[in-house]
Nucleic acid binder design. Structure first.
Length: 324
DNA sequence: AATGTCATCAACCGCTCGCTC
DNA sequence: AGAGCGAGCGGTTGATGACAT
């Protein structure tokens, strides 16, 4: 389908120009992609409005910019969001909120648009299923104390499956993604509901406050690591909600007020540390997640179309250079 | 097989920010 | 100082494919 528009109010072009231009909207054609790629290759990025005028594309500068940044840019990474990326998104979003471009800066090759879509389609969906606001404390607690530790666990399981060390070997084990691992947040929703019940049973008015037994998260006894979909979290009753919530999850002591807190053991990824250092995700305990990330580029569904497009473009350039 | 519903993601829109003059 | 402009950001929409009925 093809749309045309006479006036783009945000294109910052004069009305006279807009009257003359029959601007295109909607999906980009291969020809348009080539034209944009060709122009950027010769003139560089930026100055999008003048680019749009000079390149002959009947698109707004904004449209050209978006197409380039989100799709045509050579280093744009496509395919499923990996576990490591999910973990990073959750953590960074907890720090910065909907600062998508800022979050995207920490996920090489991912665009703000992609991360935003991931958040809206995956995370917000589950907030809706939990019948709580995505910005509510209880939902944030669910992410922090349930989903994120679980992601860490899965990352470790994947690393262990690939040899348990930094993975530069290009094995498929690290390419496990949210979608294809047969695990999803639905399990966690059931777990969350259990927490609600138990929390309420213990006269806890705010069921967003809960604690997670450390033993639940060790790889040894993890039901997830043992290829079960159920999440073996144990929930401890809470006596002091505020204290419980504020207590750092990775301090030296793993007990407080006779309660047990989640704390990775020595062999686990130091998740707690990464809370203050997002970049630290990629260098903990001998698990080189950055390297894993690189490996995943080849494993998790990179879109062949992109490669083909660039191949075709390169071929076209060669032909042009040779005056073929 | 036809239709309806849902999930995903590319693209658009309106707004803000920052730079230049 | 402030107007004009380009670029970028975040929210939203619409097309499309997958899946369910």
């Amino acid at each position: 389908m093809e749309h045309h528009v006479k006036v783009d109010s945000s294109s910052n072009q004069s009305n006279e120009e807009l009257d003359e231009m029959d601007l295109r909207r909607g999906p980009w054609t291969v020809e348009e992609d080539f034209a944009l790629m060709n122009y950027v290759a010769h003139h560089g990025e930026g100055r999008w409005n003048s680019l749009a005028r000079s390149s002959g594309l009947k698109r707004t500068g904004k449209s050209c910019r978006l197409r380039w940044l989100n799709y045509l840019r050579p280093d744009v990474r496509r395919g499923n969001i990996t576990l490591e990326e999910q973990l990073l998104i959750l953590e960074l979003h907890s720090q910065w909120g909907n600062r998508w471009s800022k979050i995207a800066q920490h996920l090489p090759g991912r665009t703000d648009n992609e991360i935003k879509n991931y958040w809206r389609t995956r995370v917000q969906k589950h907030a809706k299923q939990l019948k709580c606001d995505v910005n509510s404390k209880q939902f944030k607690d669910t992410m922090r104390y349930l989903w994120m530790p679980r992601l860490v666990e899965r990352i470790q399981a994947a690393a262990a499956a690939s040899g348990g060390s930094s993975s530069t070997s290009g094995t498929t084990a690290t390419a496990v993604t949210y979608q294809n691992q047969n695990c999803n947040m639905d399990d966690d929703i059931a777990q969350f509901n259990n927490m609600v019940v138990q929390s309420n049973m213990n006269s806890c008015n705010n069921y967003g406050n809960f604690q997670i037994n450390q033993s639940s998260y060790t790889p040894e006894n993890s039901s997830t690591a043992a290829s079960s979909d159920s999440f073996g979290t144990q929930v401890s009753p809470i006596s002091d909600l505020t204290d419980c919530y504020n207590y750092p999850i990775n301090q030296g002591n793993n007990t407080h007020n006779n309660q047990t807190y989640y704390q990775p053991n020595a062999n686990q990824l130091a998740y707690g540390e990464s809370l203050t250092s997002p970049g630290g995700y990629f260098s903990h305990q001998g698990v080189n997640y950055q390297a894993m990330d690189q490996d995943n580029r080849w494993m998790d569904g990179g879109d062949a179309h992109d490669d083909n497009l660039w191949d075709m473009w390169s071929l076209q350039q060669q032909m042009n250079n040779n005056n073929i």
